[in-house]
Amino acid sequence: MTSDGSRTPSGGIVIIGSLSPETQEQLAKVADGKIATVSGAPQTHVLETTGVDLRRLSERVNKVVGTEGVVAPILADDEGNQLLPTGRMQVRFKEAPTDKVLQSFARKHKVAPGERNKWSPQQAEFAVRTDDTRYFPDVAAEMEKDSKVATAWPDVRAAFRREST
């Protein structure tokens, strides 16, 4: 993790994309486990594992998934909360980027063209491409090294709790 050091890969792999039944079958074999879907998050599949090198597993899963989806490790914070990457990167630029900057940034970092945040012009969102075989956390790390970038992080789905007793 880049902008928030407390988030580390842990506990499994997320695949974001529409997977064919054949791919799902192959994935189950690769991961020695079942593929779960996520309620309210269509096209998000989770392979939960323990004690596995997630970078290696990610490479293997990527080969199976091909261009059907984006592969990323599940992230966990200090408190053990599991965070499921959405396949998109949030990038906070030092200055509000122009369209030209967004385009060249996408090209340079091999991600889909970015979309400026409507509510926060300094920020933009980039989707990781399905043909990208890099280890997902490395993409954010590379982006953060860019001189135009203040910070970058993978967007995630997380469990929020309504605080009623």
Binding site: S3, D4, S6, D77, E79, N81, L83, Q90, R92, S120, Q123, T151, W153, D155, V156, A158, A159, F160, R161, R162, E163, S164
Partner: peptide, 14 residues
């Protein structure tokens, strides 16, 4: 905001 969740850079910026 009657809720809580994992600390998040995006929410912190917001």
């Amino acid at each position: 905001c009657s809720w809580s969740g994992p600390a998040s850079p995006d929410i912190r910026f917001a």
